[in-house]
Design a protein around this nucleic acid. Sequence first.
DNA 1: GTCAATGATTTAAT
DNA 2: ATTAAATCATTGAC
Length: 400
Amino acid sequence: MKIHFQFFQCTMDEQARMMQSLSGVNLAGLSVHGGMGLQPAHMHDGTDADGRKQDIGDILHQIMTITDQSLDEAQAKKHGLNCHRMKPALFSVLCEIKEKTGLSIRGAQEEDLPDPQLMRLDNMLLAEGVSGPEKGGGASAAATAAAAAGVAAENSIEHSDYRAKLGQIRQIYHTELEKYEQACNEFTTHVMNLLREQSRTRPISPKEIERMVGIIHRKFSSIQMQLKQSTCEAVMILRSRSTSTHAGVRKRRNFSKQATEVLNEYFYSHLSNPYPSEEAKEELAKKCSITMSQGARTTFTVSQVSNWFGNKRIRYKKNIGKFQEEANLYAAKTAVTAAHAVAAAVQNSQTNSPATPNSGFQMKDEDFQLDSTDSKSNLLSSMFTGAYPTACFQPDGRIQ
DNA sequence: GTCAATGATTTAAT
DNA sequence: ATTAAATCATTGAC
């Protein structure tokens, strides 16, 4: 971009000099012709063509033999013309004529409706948090953090990588955008100065300058659009990598052993009603976050707790037998924490009927009650095989 | 490579 | 809004 800009700058300088030089030559040429009393080119005799050729050859020769001296001479003549007493009046007339002839053409192409594609790109960048408020600095950081908490923390598990890359993209985007804007401003200023400078020697109306500025801005905004487009593409690629191809399943990381332990403890100690309240979920999420704090993951969300319990309930229900060992383990674990209850639990296991150990487990689905005898044979068989922690299946989910 | 375990998502029901 | 159930997709053990 910088290169292009400099290139433009060069050409503009070059152009300016050339224009001045050429106008000088023309003036010099005209004055020379007039001074030497040469015939005008439009003669209507037979020597017309020859005369023109001669004339053109003459001019070419003059151009070829331009020297610094003749340039200085031309400048001096130009200055002389500029100082002519009729110059301001003539110049203003010239400007007026140009204004009248040029305005109708310009007025037609003065359309400034916002590009729908640009708007789409802008909206997307805003939605992705690329073009939004700067993060990681000052007061805006808090706002961004809050916004991120709303959007990202919901399902954020391994988002640090994603966030870091997004931050990179955002930074590149902003620096590039800034560069473009700066370049645009510099270029505009340069062109405006140039035109203003030239407006002294040739008729340039303020409207014309304005139009030029408009053209420059449009050009730069088209470049900006390319930047926005490629930024969008980068974000899209990043997204498609962080999410799965089909169902939007994010990369799964197994929970830490401690977190699973916390959740299982709650589940098996509330087996009669394994539906933690919102507060309980928050509590569990907090507990899990603490236990897994040394890992890469620092957040354990309520929705993850909900997911876990949803999965656990359905999987437990589907195959209770498979989970017996686990149930025993956690029941025992809970029992240990309440040492005095162990004896009672043992006693209960003797007194309570083993036929209804699970009666307290009430799923939302009423079909899942132990009175149905069909597909629960695995459960029944497992119930009679060894130490069954009846204590944790009491209706209130507590150890007796 | 297979395969069970498991976290996350989707769908439909309430 | 929450849940059950089905399903997807990854993980980790073999």
